[in-house]
């Protein structure tokens, strides 16, 4: 690990599954001068379920995350996200860390799922490991000074139930044009407590939807009401225009995704 960080410090780019980096020529991006392969580091490939949190190594692939955490009540949205991303062959290779470190990739499924789950990113720099809330990391990652390595993602085990809803333009196999991940504390009366709602792919970087969270906090879990509340607030986002979909469309479909995610939460409640 220390060697890898030293290499990164000297300017090497971390290389994990490589599925994003090997597509650089197609994006008209130059390959970096040097890469350091991090997929071989055992500590980056481990998934540890502790009493308080689940620690997922950054070099864990989407497929192995699904296999290891399928059925884990604490990670439902994350498992759904990892299991639906891209396609089976890519999920076998593409890593969690690679996905989160592809700065220009707006349609990450994992990013909103991790935000909704209130996860933290562990970053290993020359001074050792440091933790940041995932949303902070995502917003800052492109501007961090060189010499860090994303090592683990930490999902708290605090009795949250969660669900992930995504909208590809086909049934599957393309990047979703909008994503909503939702989590809430389990409650006996089906009211929403500590609700967290994250939106991905609509803007360049995934983020929470604070106004909708406030509006739903303490209300009973009614997917239709949640969709209605979302409809009133889609203006909170500035949808990005892309070749595949215009910005307005990404915003317009959010109520539907909120309803779908809330139905997913309801199914677990």
């Amino acid at each position: 690990m220390a060697e890898a960080v030293a290499a990164v410090e000297e300017g090497a780019t971390p290389l994990a599954g490589a599925t994003w980096i090997l597509r650089s020529p197609i994006r008209d991006e130059k390959l970096a001068g040097s890469y350091v392969a991090v997929s071989g580091l055992a500590e980056l490939r481990a998934i540890e379920t502790g009493d308080r949190e689940i620690a997922i190594g950054a070099a864990v692939t989407h497929a192995s995350l699904c296999a290891a955490l399928n059925g884990s009540a604490d990670c439902a949205a994350l498992v759904q996200a990892a299991g639906a991303a891209a396609n089976p062959a890519i999920r076998n290779v593409a890593t969690i860390g690679g996905n989160l470190c592809a700065f220009s990739f707006a349609a990450s499924d994992l990013a909103p799922a991790l935000i909704a789950l209130d996860a933290q990113a562990e970053i290993y720099g020359v001074s050792g490991p440091e933790r940041k809330p995932i949303e902070t990391f995502l917003a800052a990652r492109a501007h961090l000074a060189r010499g860090w390595l994303l090592t683990r993602l930490l999902v708290p085990r605090n009795g949250r139930i969660s669900a992930h809803a995504r909208l590809p333009l086909r049934k599957a196999g393309d990047y979703p044009v909008a994503i909503v991940s939702v989590s809430a504390k389990r409650s006996s009366d089906r009211t929403l407590r500590s609700v967290r709602i994250a939106v991905g792919s609509v803007e360049p970087v995934a983020r929470r939807w604070p106004a909708l969270e406030r509006a739903l906090e303490g209300r009973s879990l009614d997917p239709e009401e949640a969709a209605e509340a979302a409809r009133e607030r889609v203006g909170d986002f500035q949808g990005r225009d892309g070749v595949e979909a215009p910005g307005w469309y990404r915003m317009q479909v959010l109520p539907k995704l909120v309803r779908a995610a809330m139905c997913g939460v309801l199914a677990q409640a």
């Binding site: 997929s39 062959a89 076998n92």
Partner: peptide, 25 residues
């Protein structure tokens, strides 16, 4: 770029796209 699957091979029994697999990996 990993969308078409025409280059799929098995790596330790799992399908992967060989166009996005560096030989180092």
């Amino acid at each position: 770029e990993g969308f078409c699957g025409a280059c799929t091979v098995l790596m330790d029994g799992q399908p992967v796209v060989s166009c996005l697999l560096p030989i180092a990996s």
